[in-house]
């Protein structure tokens, strides 16, 4: 499944179409990452973007936040970043005579966590706890995170001194791992011509309301039907990853849940109220590779291709 083929498919849902349309003028050549990000977002998952700096990760995150009318926070990870720099902390208020909680950037709807692998494991785990539990505990007090909570973490794939790569167990917490990649020559020319659009991006009007976003998220889990045949297909995929000669460990149950929930969103985006095999197939290369462990001898191969070829041996229900 190539990017071209995915984008070729018309997005059938009018609301989603509106979001995509409004953002596409600012995100030239990033249609695919945009649509994947939206799928991830509406599936209530978190997104890990592995790419080089300067390819528009922030633009993507800001764009999504703005067009959906959501708050946006950004964390630039460094090795001296403390957990409280993410979660926030209580500061003594002289006037009130008491400690006052100052929420950190994580209390936003959409949080961009740049270069997550440069943060120390302690800070990373604070962030991952927040992602997993949708709550933070500061000084013995638990604070719930907003209902819409979407983390976009980025990491630099090139090995760098002083980086702390995320352990596999924590990678599993990201619903998808995507790459943005270089834009096409045409799109890049357009970007050069127009200059950076970051400023304008901050000023765009939301396409839908926050409540509507919540409604859509609920709607996807409630109204999109998943057939027994699709469950069978998913189970076959899981079994294949667990038995594959390329992998030392296959998909977790959480991974399987991810496959179904992303497929639901994908179906919803295409205006269907039921899931078909393609909804799963299109996304496997983003939902599976970071959750499985490859044998050492295959580490150097393209992991996405290995997973794709694995799926090519599983017959679809139709």
């Amino acid at each position: 499944m190539t990017i071209h083929e995915i984008t070729h498919r018309a997005v059938n849902n009018s609301k989603i179409a509106n979001i995509t349309a409004s953002l596409s003028q600012y995100l030239q050549g990033k249609e695919k990452p945009l649509s994947l990000s939206l799928i991830c977002f509406f599936s209530k998952g978190h997104l890990l973007i592995e790419d080089l700096p300067g390819l528009g990760k922030t633009t993507l995150a800001v764009g999504i936040a703005r067009s959906l009318g959501l708050t946006f926070g950004r964390i630039q990870c460094t090795s001296d970043l403390l957990p409280t720099d993410i979660t926030g902390l209580s500061i003594y208020n002289k006037n009130a005579g008491e400690f006052e909680f100052h929420a950190g950037p994580i209390f936003n709807n959409i949080v961009l966590c740049d270069e997550i692998n440069r943060a120390t494991p302690k800070t990373q785990s604070a962030l991952l706890e927040a992602m997993g539990e949708k709550q933070v505990t500061i000084e013995g007090k638990t604070y719930s995170l907003p209902k819409i909570f979407f983390v976009m973490a980025t990491q630099n794939p090139t090995e760098q001194f002083g980086a702390f790569p995320l352990p596999e167990s924590q990678l599993d917490r990201f619903m998808m791992k995507i790459q943005i990649g270089y834009p096409s020559e045409e799109a890049e020319r357009e970007i050069l011509r127009l200059g950076s659009t970051r400023e304008e991006l901050y000023s765009i009007e939301p396409v839908i309301e926050k409540e509507e976003v919540i409604h859509i998220q609920e709607d996807i889990t409630k109204s999109v039907f998943v057939s027994e045949k699709i469950f069978d297909y998913t189970l076959a995929i899981i079994k294949a990853t667990r038995k594959s000669e390329y992998l030392t460990s296959g998909l977790s149950t959480r991974g399987a849940l991810t496959i179904i929930s992303t497929a639901r969103t994908n179906a919803y985006f295409k205006g269907r109220d039921f899931v078909i095999s393609e909804d799963i197939k299109e996304l496997v290369e983003y939902t599976i590779p970071h959750r499985v462990l490859f044998r050492e001898e295959y580490e150097s191969l393209n992991k996405r291709e290995i997973i794709t070829s694995l799926i090519e041996h599983i017959p679809t229900p139709a």
Binding site: E5, H8, R9, I276, S277, E278, K281, I311, E312, H313, I314, P315, T316, A318
Partner: peptide, 11 residues
Amino acid sequence: EASQGLEEFVS
């Protein structure tokens, strides 16, 4: 192909 979905096949 057996691993093709119907829509994938038709498209």
